Simulated assay, not measured.
Amino acid sequence: MKLSITRLFFLLSIFIFTGLNAQQTSVMVRAKAKDAKFIGSSIGGAKIYIKNAETGEILAEGLTTGSTGNTDKIMNSPWKRNEDLSEENTAGFLANIDIDEPVFVTVEAHAPINKKQATVISSTQLWLIPGKDITGDGVVLEVPGFVVDILSPQTHERIPETNEVQIMANIVLMCGCPVTEGGIWDANQYEVKALISSEGEQIQELEMTVGEKPSTFSAKKNLNAGLYGITVYAFDPVTGNTGVDKTNIIIN
């Protein structure tokens, strides 16, 4: 019994000593869409993971929440060294991690987390040092791409052969920023096409044009009876941003 009590006190002393030496270290992590704004609450956020790079242990995880940021500051104003692009309400995830020695970590952003066909992983690595907070803009991970959602036709929709197939897609930046003619994210800069395939072979390529409703592109086509796959892609030749969505339909 004495040995058990002695061992218990020994373990408690180690725990207390370790706890006293551990320091809370704050790390702000933000996900920023390439050529656009921060990924926040309006599109469901980015899922952030901070992991011990050696062991893979997750030290912190959470969602970026808040606004996409100040459009004029981010997109129109010249950037100066050491000047934050973020503001108080700009989307981010603040992690508070207790560490007692420097830890080399991997920081990942899975974004936008609620759009699975568009979600990509952006990551970086850095050292965290006990008590040395990383705040302000913090760790900013760039997330390239477009979110492409095919609105019409619906998945596995049956369409009479006599009907024209209306292909419609919604296309936004990874932060949810809208695509419009002549806007900050100019629809005329982007290549948007629908690829129609049957039995695994591409048979049609249609140019999609922007409509009156922001971020909406469409094309029309008559198809013979059969099974078809439709792929819609968006491509920005200036930044290299890309995005894709797919669906399947039946013409009968």
Rank of each mutant, 00 (worst) to 15 (best):
E57P: 03
P130Q: 09
T25L: 11
T6I: 13
Q166A: 09
V165F: 08
E191C: 01
I159H: 00
I203L: 06
Q202K: 05
D133A: 06
Q204M: 11
I249A: 01
T55I: 10
K51F: 04
L126R: 13
N114M: 12
Q166M: 11
D35Q: 09
N21C: 08
V179P: 02
T106M: 09
F15W: 12
V120L: 08
T119C: 11
S13E: 06
V192P: 01
T162S: 15
T155L: 11
I97R: 09
I5Y: 13
E61V: 01
I196C: 07
E101I: 08
I39C: 01
F93D: 02
Y228S: 05
G131H: 13
C175A: 09
A36H: 03
I58Y: 05
G243A: 06
H110T: 02
K73A: 07
H156M: 12
L12G: 01
V29G: 04
T25E: 02
G40A: 11
L206F: 13
N82R: 11
S42K: 14
A95C: 11
E87T: 12
V165C: 09
T135H: 03
M174I: 05
M208S: 03
K73E: 02
A60S: 14
N76H: 14
Y49S: 08
I121N: 12
G40E: 08
Q24Y: 10
E181C: 04
P214V: 03
I121T: 15
D84K: 10
P178F: 11
P144W: 04
V148K: 00
A234C: 03
L223A: 09
L195C: 01
Q166E: 12
P160H: 08
A234L: 00
T18S: 15
E207Y: 14
V147I: 12
E161Q: 11
S123N: 14
G136I: 06
I16A: 07
R158N: 13
I43F: 00
M75I: 14
L63H: 15
V148E: 00
G183I: 02
E87Y: 07
E83L: 13
G240E: 01
N96K: 14
T242F: 10
W185Q: 06
I129R: 04
N76W: 12
R158L: 11
A36T: 04
S67W: 01
N188P: 00
E212I: 05
V29R: 04
I249R: 05
P112K: 05
P144V: 04
R7C: 12
K213H: 07
T18K: 15
S152M: 03
T155C: 06
E212K: 10
V172M: 08
F235D: 05
V238I: 14
K193E: 14
I48W: 10
V29F: 12
Y190P: 00
Y49P: 00
Q24W: 03
E207Q: 05
L8M: 11
S122W: 04
R81S: 13
N170E: 13
S77A: 09
V147C: 04
A118G: 05
T106D: 07
I97Y: 13
W185K: 07
K221Q: 15
V105H: 03
A109S: 15
G183E: 00
M28D: 09
F38P: 04
K2T: 15
M208A: 07
